[in-house]
Design a protein around this nucleic acid. Structure first.
Length: 926
RNA sequence: AGUCGCGUAGCUCAGUGGUAGAGCACUUCCUUGACAUGGAAGUGGUCGGUGGUUCGAUCCCACUCGCGACUACCA
């Protein structure tokens, strides 16, 4: 084995093997365990959020597979309607082609080509991460089978009256020329103005002042509203004003929604272009004046001179004309919430159009109950509040999009505009002809469904629904959904609603909501900020030049490139080193806390790369001392205290890891395993084993080899869910030596705690050994005594048990503490001038012999005593407080008394020692 | 406006009603046959502030300051 772990070649080779041997498919007869991957955009690429999420899911999947569950991690991709269509459209633009010229069929064909070309990227990237998804079952939301599910759901919902078509105000994207759902609207606070406009009263007796942030929509006003109790305007209610720039007379109405303290207290009502106004309009039976075209220009309903103006120009012109007429009273600066499309970024326009909607209330009720009743559990629990908050105020879901890429709505119209919703065109036609005659012809609704409509079916459409089959029965409901909080509404809630509706059961039992990965400064990673890190660049490494190129090409706003380049060069002066997949995965696991934001820092990955290397070298050691050497038979219980100790510690580490997995606390699992591997197994056990392995007792050495192999092999398995590659690579070398059969660590069972006994006696003994070693190391460390220098310490106040321990562990102490001999002093026996370490009830003395500066030793001892004094002070304060003694639980009081006794004992020794050393310092003798 | 979250070592974060932890960084020493991507020792924190509950609060409660996210029809 190489001295340094080199993941590069190992990872891809192992993954190919796993996949080709079919290890990822559900196996065995254990209870089913299923995770549905949140399907990434088929033409997308893997980002840090994916990598984080996939690491969590893979760790859970591998863990459950090892626990014997019949495990399925369902993989697949999403067609991502708007996003994908935009990408292809941009490609066409660049090539000087136009979508509309091309026609629908050719365009859709073109998108499929793009999918074929780029669709494999994210799958390849998933493989590099080690994701143990079952590729045999890979699905795509526009596969024939899944499309069939979509149609089926649509038709059934329509039959039940839960899908309807209606002309309503909808969030319209004037750039993409499609309707959007409420969730696709990003409300941003922006700087704007509040214009105070004068609307002349019909009778010429003056004017009303109306405050608005959108003066151009004045052309579509139907009324002016005031609060019914507003004394200033009460007498005007029922009268009319002359709408400026038009000849229309509009009424002054009273409605309690008006806030008297905002603006002038008078609101213009534009029912065709504002959601609130629309409701007011309905309440008061006001007419709707649509003044915009689909691309947000003024239409023919406005005065001829204004027609065709884009809404921004329209605003200018309207204001010009109003000020010309003296109708602008004043303009205030005003911060307002502006609705923008989450894809296009342009300001959305509430527009009156025909769209399809899902009547959501009947679906939301059961979905709320499912969570209330605990049939679905959010982890962390808090997210259920967010879920309830939204679900209880949910509004009908606009599901039609004026796009070409997606599931076309299964609705057909005859010439008279009658609509036929059916599973196929033939069925629609049959129905139409039955009703309206044999010569009826149909045209299909051109719209497609919101991408999230098909995503909502993912937990059952991927398993073959509406067919009934074994997979569906086994793997629905899934066990856990792993997702970010950003799509609780978009996806989680909708899966719950439709799962309950069509499967009669929840789609998953638990929803594990993880945090969002941000950069080291806490900024969201985005291409335009230039702070994106490709997870595979952390795995494989990347040169600075390549990184700069990657970050600065293909920018939507090319002018940002220089800034991005500069920042990148500063942050990564020499590019990014290769860290390997396992190091990255371990990093993600360690970051999987319950916090909402996760700051990703490369330094952390480097730390875990070092951890991989540590494990690698532990393997080298284990192999070196075990290969071709006598090894005790498996299942022989070790007698050596150190062997028993490490087994007991592994027992605890496994318990901690298991409970961490059960709680979705991968950070705690990672910590438990890291801690055990590095600070117990490597730092102590490997060192403590050396004297035995090199000693004369062949039987003891063979027994230690057994434990070494047992513990290490089990450790590899415990680490495998998080670090699949390195553990597999090492396991294949170690398993044969350990006498373990099997092709792959992937197929081994999760280590059994019962095989590693808890052993309190061994724990106490090793604590004693460590105490002596640490005490001596401290003296060495602080006195700068060379490790090469052997010591011959003396021990004062040794009890019989201490004597026995010294005798038993002489070889260990000789090696780890670097001591030649130990002399146990009798009571009252004089000692030479020494540095001292208090260990339990005894004091270990290292004769100074010119090695030790008494002054330094004096400071050291004094500092120790001061610390102890603080503890004693605090403990005494408690114990002298009668309230504490009377009210605190007796065991707490007892512990406190013990502590104080212990500290005092130590301080007695220290005081004695300080006195001696003090003497040396003042006399200058050593 | 409403809902939720965060504030702990220089940095990034765990954590607990009774003794405050990790990683990185920092200081000193060490090329000891697993590992310098290493080993040993060490420095560093009135746990945002105030008040309350309690024998005891970093932890529970209230208020407050600072930051953030989400939801929402103040034109």
């Amino acid at each position: 084995m190489d001295k340094v772990y080199e993941p590069r070649d190992i990872e891809q080779r192992l993954y190919a093997e796993w996949e080709s041997r079919g290890y990822f498919a559900p196996q065995g007869s254990g209870s089913p365990y299923c995770i549905m991957i949140p399907p990434p955009n088929v033409t997308g690429t893997l980002h840090m959020g994916h990598a984080f999420q996939d690491t969590i899911m893979d760790a859970l999947t591998r863990y459950h597979r090892m626990r014997g569950d019949r495990t399925l991690w369902q993989v697949g991709t999403d067609h991502a309607g708007i996003a994908t269509q935009m990408v292809v459209q941009r490609q066409l633009d660049a090539a000087g082609q136009s979508r509309t010229q091309m026609g629908r069929e050719a365009f859709v064909e073109r998108v499929w080509e793009w999918k074929a070309q780029s669709g494999g990227t994210i799958a390849r990237q998933l493989r590099r991460l080690g994701a143990s998804v079952d590729w045999q079952r890979e699905r795509f939301t526009m596969d024939a089978e899944l499309s069939r599910s979509v149609t089926e759901v649509f038709v059934r919902l329509h039959e039940e009256g839960l899908i309807y078509r209606g002309k309503r105000l909808v969030n319209w994207d004037p750039k993409l020329l499609t309707a959007l759902s409420d969730l696709e609207v990003i409300a941003t606070e922006e700087e704007g103005s509040l214009w105070h406009l004068r609307y002349p009263l019909e009778d010429g007796s003056g004017h009303l002042v109306v405050a608005t942030t959108r003066p151009e929509t004045l052309l579509g006003d139907s009324a002016v509203a005031v609060h019914p109790d507003d004394e200033r305007y009460r007498h005007l209610v029922g009268k009319r004003v002359k709408l400026p720039l038009t000849d229309r007379l509009i009424p002054i109405i009273a409605d309690a929604f008006v806030d008297r303290d905002f603006g002038s207290g008078c609101v213009k009502i534009t029912p065709a272009h504002d959601f609130t106004d629309n409701e007011v309009g309905q309440r008061h039976g006001l007419p709707l004046f649509n003044i915009f075209t689909l691309d947000a220009r003024l239409n023919d309903s406005v005065p001829a001179r204004l027609r065709g103006l884009a809404r921004e120009q329209a605003r200018e012109r309207v204001l010009e004309e109003l000020s010309g007429a003296g109708l602008v009273e004043r303009v205030d600066k005003h911060r307002l919430m502006v609705p923008r499309g989450d894809r296009s970024g342009v300001v959305l326009e509430p527009l009156l159009t025909d769209q399809w909607y899902v009547r959501i209330a009947p679906l939301a009720g059961p979905a709320i109950e499912a969570v209330e009743q605990g049939r679905i559990r959010f982890v962390p629990e808090n997210w259920s509040k967010t879920y309830f908050e939204w679900m209880k105020n949910i509004r009908d879901w606009c599901i039609s999009r004026q796009l070409w890429w997606g599931h076309q709505i299964p609705a057909w119209y005859d010439a008279a505009g009658n609509v036929f919703v059916a599973r196929s065109e033939a069925a629609a036609l049959a129905a139409a002809r039955l009703m309206h005659g044999e010569d009826t012809t149909l045209t299909r609704d051109p719209d497609v469904l919101d991408t999230w409509f098909s995503s909502a079916l993912w937990p059952f459409s991927t398993l073959g629904w509406p067919e009934d089959n074994a997979d569906l029965r086994q793997f629905y409901p899934g066990n856990v959904l792993v997702t970010g909080f950003d799509i609780i509404f978009f996806w989680v809630a909708r899966m719950i609603m439709l799962g309950l509706k069509f499967m009669g059961d929840v789609p998953f039992r638990e929803v594990y909501v993880h945090g969002l990965v941000r950069d080291g400064e806490g900024q969201k990673m985005s291409k335009s900020k230039g702070n994106v890190v490709d997870p595979l660049d952390i795995v494989d490494g990347i040169s600075l030049e390549d990184l700069v190129a990657k970050r600065t090409t293909g920018l939507m706003q090319p002018h940002l490139a220089p800034g991005i380049e500069k920042a990148t060069r500063k942050q990564f002066p020499s590019g990014i080193e290769a860290h390997g997949t396992d190091a990255l995965r371990f990093t993600f696991a360690s970051l999987a806390t319950q916090s909402r934001d996760i700051r990703f820092e490369l330094g952390r990955v480097a730390g875990y790369r070092n951890f991989c290397n540590k494990l690698w070298n532990a393997a080298r050691f284990v192999l070196m001392v075990c290969e071709d050497k006598p090894i005790a038979a498996p299942h022989t219980l070790p007698q050596g205290v150190v062997d028993r100790w490490i087994r007991s510690r592994l027992h605890d580490a496994l318990a901690a890891t298991e409970s961490a997995f059960a709680d979705y606390r991968l950070d705690q699992a990672a910590t438990a395993l890291y801690e055990f591997t590095w600070h117990e197994f490597c730092d102590w056990y490997l060192e403590l084993s050396k004297p035995v392995l090199q000693g004369d007792d062949a039987a003891a050495a063979a027994a230690t080899r057994r434990t070494l192999l047992d513990v290490f092999e089990a450790l590899l398995r415990a680490l495998h869910p998080v670090m699949p590659f390195i553990t597999e690579e090492i396991w294949r070398r170690v398993a044969p030596v350990a006498g373990e059969a099997g092709e792959s660590i992937m197929l081994t069972p999760w280590p059994d705690q019962a095989a590693f006994m808890a052993d309190n006696v061994a724990l106490a003994d090793v604590e004693w050994i460590k105490g002596v070693i640490l005490g001596l190391r401290q003296i060495r460390g602080e006195m700068d005594i060379s490790p090469a220098r052997r010591l011959s310490p003396l021990v004062r106040d040794a009890a019989d048990s201490d004597r026995q321990q010294f005798a038993r562990h002489a070889a260990l102490l000789a090696r780890l503490a670097g001591i030649d001999s130990v002399k146990l002093l009798d009571a009252g026996e004089a000692a030479p001038a020494s540095a001292a370490a208090v260990v339990g009830n005894m004091t270990v003395l290292v004769p100074m012999q010119g090695l030790i500066d008494p002054a330094v030793e004096l400071t050291r001892l004094t500092r120790k005593r001061e610390k102890n004094d603080q503890e004693i002070g605090r403990a005494r304060a408690k114990l002298t407080n009668p309230n504490f003694v009377n009210h605190a639980p007796p065991e707490v009081v007892a512990t406190e008394r013990e502590r104080i006794a212990q500290f005092e004992k130590v301080n007695d020794s220290l005081a004695r020692q300080i006195q001696i050393v003090q003497g040396l310092v003042t006399t200058g003798q050593v």
